Amino acid sequence: MDPQQSPDGTDSGISSLSFDESGVLRLVWDRGVDIDAPQAEAAMARVNETAGPDRVPLLIDMATTSSVSRSARAVFARPCAAAAIALLGASAVDRVLANFFLGVYKAPCPTKFFTDEARARAWLAEAADGR
């Protein structure tokens, strides 16, 4: 299935979703996307579908995300196939979005915000193994 399309054929807001060579599932949002509940639902469904029966480390590149609605944040607070989630951003706005989510909602698995991809990956390797 095309990552840009949700199961009902609407725009999911996802630019790409795939495993990298180290086994990390990487989700990249479209530039400037305003994530709403249907897009959050579609993203979670795609993560679960792609991961299959396994719980996997998930790297979410949110560097170009414009906003995340309250209803989308509630969707993201539900468990999914992720064993651990690293939120990768690039700006103070990204950090505020991530910290707001982490402060208001209980994340379904270990979740942390990073601006450095190498640190995010190192943390994911440890957190996904339950260390």
Rank of each mutant, 00 (worst) to 15 (best):
S91T: 15
R131A: 11
A51V: 07
W29S: 04
R26H: 11
P79E: 06
V24F: 05
T50R: 14
C109G: 07
T111F: 04
F100G: 13
L87N: 07
D129P: 01
V75T: 13
M1K: 05
W123T: 05
Y105W: 15
S16D: 09
P38S: 07
R131K: 15
A42W: 07
R78P: 00
A127S: 07
T65M: 13
A120E: 01
F113C: 07
L58D: 03
D129H: 08
D36N: 13
V104I: 14
M62Y: 01
G23Q: 10
R31N: 12
P38Y: 04
L102R: 11
R95V: 11
G23L: 09
P3E: 05
M62N: 04
V96I: 14
V47R: 06
E41I: 14
A72S: 09
S12G: 10
L58C: 08
P53G: 14
L25G: 06
L88M: 06
G89P: 08
A40E: 08
F114W: 04
T111H: 02
W29Q: 04
R31Q: 12
D30K: 15
S71T: 14
S66K: 14
A86M: 04
P57H: 08
T111R: 03
A107V: 07
E21F: 00
L87D: 00
A51E: 01
R119F: 11
R95E: 14
L87W: 13
A107Y: 03
V24L: 09
D129V: 01
I14W: 00
D54Y: 02
Q39W: 00
E49H: 11
A107C: 04
F113H: 13
A118V: 14
M62H: 08
L88H: 05
S67E: 06
L87I: 14
T115W: 01
I85V: 15
L59N: 04
K106I: 09
D94I: 08
E126A: 15
W29N: 05
T50I: 12
P57T: 11
A74K: 13
L27A: 10
S16N: 04
L124G: 09
G103E: 06
C109E: 00
D34T: 08
A120C: 02
L124A: 10
A72T: 10
S6W: 03
R31L: 11
V104R: 12
L124I: 10
A84C: 12
L102Y: 03
G89H: 09
R131H: 11
L59D: 01
F19H: 05
D11K: 10
V68P: 02
A74H: 09
M44D: 06
E117T: 03
N48I: 09
I60E: 08
R119E: 15
S16W: 02
G103P: 10
